[in-house]
Design a binder for these strands. Structure first.
Lengths: 113, 113
DNA sequence: AAAAATACATAAGAATATTATGCATACAAC
DNA sequence: GTTGTATGCATAATATTCTTATGTATTTTT
């Protein structure tokens, strides 16, 4: 099962920033693969969504970049800036709060495995 | 605190359908007020977002409408159609699943009040 | 040798929100 | 008594952010 696209909207930046927090230094393709793996293929970030998002994060000063060559192929590494580090914590606690509100609003019961 | 708008994106239809499931028959303005009240003002649905969404739900056959006059003022009531009833259950379980995935992905700990 | 995977990027289009505007009635305050 | 706030609908211009498609090129697998 892949989540309907509308659900992912609004959470992509948070997902990307969190991966960079966990892994210090990642390139775009690596982020898509890591998220795919961690979510058992449930969240598949497309390139058309990822790259504009990474560029926006860079323009906002939340990430910094370094370009490297692996053989003849270019690879662009992204890292959290100090501003990005403080932003990710805020974003995650806002999302956590939002999810609690949604659970209440939609009568979603906690998982009783 | 009001949630940043991007978070709400993609959940508006689900919120509206759930309110109609809970209350059988509601008009647009009533939905915005009920959601505002239930979420302690954290989720404020704007009219520019609500009405196009209601019209889309009607076009998709998920809700039916009845127009009534209260004095001289018009009021448009919305109710879940059979199709809407099955859709809301699917949407909520998908969202519940998605939220669990996000919790895992973002290392969000359960509330220990 | 061909196909699939890796790796970047942009552009056209769709979906869905924000913000602004418009109309109109009802009620409260000054 | 009229002015502001609340109720109640709706649409339009704009912005954001995604999907889908396209483009280029290298590396690895079949």
């Amino acid at each position: 099962m892949i989540y309907s696209s509308e659900l992912i909207k609004g959470t992509l930046k948070t997902i990307v920033l969190k991966q960079l927090e966990n892994n210090k230094r990642m390139y775009g393709y690596e982020i898509t693969q890591k998220v795919k793996e961690l979510t058992s293929d449930k969240i598949q970030i497309t390139e058309g969504a990822l790259y504009p998002t990474l560029h926006a994060l860079e323009a906002d000063g939340l990430v910094t970049t370094e370009t490297e060559y692996i053989g003849k192929r270019v690879r662009k590494y992204y890292s959290l800036s100090p501003k990005g580090k403080s932003t990710i914590d805020e974003k995650i606690s806002e999302l956590a709060d939002f999810m609690n509100t949604m659970k209440f609003l939609l009568d979603i019961q906690p998982q009783t495995i």
